[in-house]
Design a protein around this nucleic acid. Structure first.
Lengths: 338, 338
DNA sequence: GCTGCAAACGTAACCGATAACGATTGCAAC
DNA sequence: GTTGCAATCGTTATCGGTTACGTTTGCAGC
């Protein structure tokens, strides 16, 4: 047993077994050209020392590692759901997963983090990467699949039908009788943020409702960014009767702000979000939102990446998954305190 | 711009800048001994090629990498909460995080997975690791912090006060008037499973209630394992009036079984769990349980690991976090159909 | 007995970076 | 004009594996 000291290397095994490291490598990787008795000796040495090959050293020399990477900015409910899907898609596939997350949230790194992390992983450690909500176009020597890409990105990607989802939820609000509908937009640059805003605009104009630029606030998908924006909207002389936020996190924050101001939801204000994170079902009232199965986003991205790495991908380069309107208690007809 | 081809290496930069790789390395790491003009040349070459140092190569040569690792078996609600805590504790710390998850859930790998993954990461890639619910003792050349360790583990660890939590929930049931309280235990070998059972026993004996071995069933924390056990308990001639399961997943399963048998909860049977996973608040009735903040588990583990790596840890080797009884609708006085 | 060939194994280069060390250069002090 | 020393930079060994290639050995065939 190795006693917590320096890690056991291949040369330790080689020395104990009385062979060269090349032979140990052959045994470990099951290559041809080692006699049965030598194999047994090496195996026993490996067993006694508790040797395990170093992922780092192996990946440096080899081209394929059977490890896929996932690069993410921060770690939220959104990410967790995506990960479940990714893990399920990779189950029994022979690929392991490495997730790289940098510690400085919202910090000095600003844009380009995805490119930096990608470069650190790919080329050696991983055979390919999934990048979640990058701030720009990504490029890499190994295959990449983007979940929720930047606007105009041409990389292989998986995304929800943000336009249709946003249109549906705004139509829902219009159907309830709302005419002054506020909007809190997502992080500029992301395709999803843009499409959700487009859906909002389209639904309004199709219903013949003029768009009031004063009712459109620029958020960043970060819940905290929504608080002052929601407050500003509600402090107006002519406040909106409903607010549609481009993410559930922001919508929940807007609901909290409304309650702080003494407004009842949905009595005085209807609130709707986008994403359908688990928390949205738990609040009182529940949040009306658009479900984009983040699980499936992850699942499809991993499936696609796996094929790309193997070189047998046949499908389209950009996958768009359907969304679904989920009506809960946070939306009701305007001026109807019940 | 590098056109998606082979990744840019340090020697590419060196060639373009007309210097050696050693000089490039010095510039990248801001070391002394390079003239200002050379620095400028190298910087410009790095910029033009889009070079980023390879994490793998660096970690192989260097001892410190400023990357911490987290090894987990699978990816569930539990894990996601832990991760949020870890990320928040690492925020702005200068440490990045790498999560290693193997793809074959519940598969051939069986026990010892944590030791294998640990060996692959530590020693080179990471400066230290967090291991979540390992199946046995772990050892490593670099610091390790275990979340929810195996019984008898002496490694640094963070765990909830399972004993106090279990005692409290059983006392709650006793206070409601229950005397025949069934118990479904967790996975043998885990410290948490053992402590929860001890809490159950202690609460009963302190109340002067004899322990009926027939009412203690051996589960595995896996919800599916609880179904036949709950059925066996309830099919008895003298069934318990309450069941305490060592995890919410198993408790929810027990509730489902009771309903299948035509029993009402809490009218005919009270059910309590442990963990307070989000689903427990959503069921009808809500599940009475013990809250162990998985977020804090992750947060404290990361904080501890950070100090261990820096060599300035002062606190105890094993941290125990408080738990909190959460009473919901699934528990009531016995024989009281509400 | 010599040749031929394949099996078995060691040697050494290499992956991309770091660091100890040595070599070169410039300039001030003698 | 040397010497001495610091600043600057290249050479090379090294991290832990992998692999192309060379060498040794055993054995069949002539």
């Amino acid at each position: 047993m190795a006693e917590g000291g320096a890690p056991v290397t291949m040369s330790d095994v080689a020395r104990l077994a009385g062979v060269s490291t090349a032979t140990v490598s052959r045994v470990v990787n099951g290559r041809y050209g080692v006699s049965a008795s030598t194999i047994a000796q090496v195996r026993s040495a490996i067993e006694r020392l508790g040797y395990e090959s170093s992922l780092v050293a192996t990946s440096l020399r080899r081209s394929r590692t059977s490890v896929l990477g996932l690069v993410t900015h921060s770690f939220q409910s959104y990410t967790a759901e995506v990960l479940k899907g990714v893990m399920d898609a990779l189950s029994q596939s022979g690929f392991d997963l490495i997730i790289y997350a940098n510690s400085d949230l919202y910090g000095t790194y600003s844009d380009g983090w995805e490119q930096r992390h990608l470069a650190r992983l790919s080329g050696t450690l991983t055979d390919g990467c999934i990048v979640v909500t990058p701030s720009g176009e990504v490029r890499s020597g190994t295959p990449v699949v983007v979940i929720d890409p930047a606007k105009g990105s041409t990389a292989p990607s998986v995304t929800a039908d943000n336009f249709a989802g946003a249109t549906a939820v705004v139509q829902h609000l219009l159907g309830l009788g709302h005419r002054r509908i506020g909007f809190i937009a997502g992080r500029a640059g992301l395709e999803s943020a843009w499409s959700r805003e487009e859906g909002y605009r389209r639904a309004l104009s199709e219903a013949g409702v003029p768009i009031d630029p004063q009712l459109v606030a620029r958020g960043s998908f970060d819940p905290e960014s929504a608080a002052p924006l929601a407050r500003a909207l509600l402090d107006r002389a002519d406040p909106p009767t409903a607010i549609f936020a481009a993410s559930d996190g922001m919508a929940l924050k807007a609901m909290a702000v409304a309650k702080d101001l003494g407004l009842s939801v949905p009595g005085d204000l209807s609130v709707a979000g986008f994403d359908n994170i688990p928390e949205s079902a738990l609040t009182e009232p529940g949040l009306t939102t658009v479900d984009q199965s983040m699980y499936r986003l992850g699942y499809e991205a991993a499936r696609m990446l796996r094929s790309l790495v193997s070189g047998d991908w046949e499908g389209p380069g950009q996958i768009v998954l359907p969304t679904r309107l989920v009506v809960r208690g946070s939306t009701a007809a305007p001026g109807n305190p019940m």
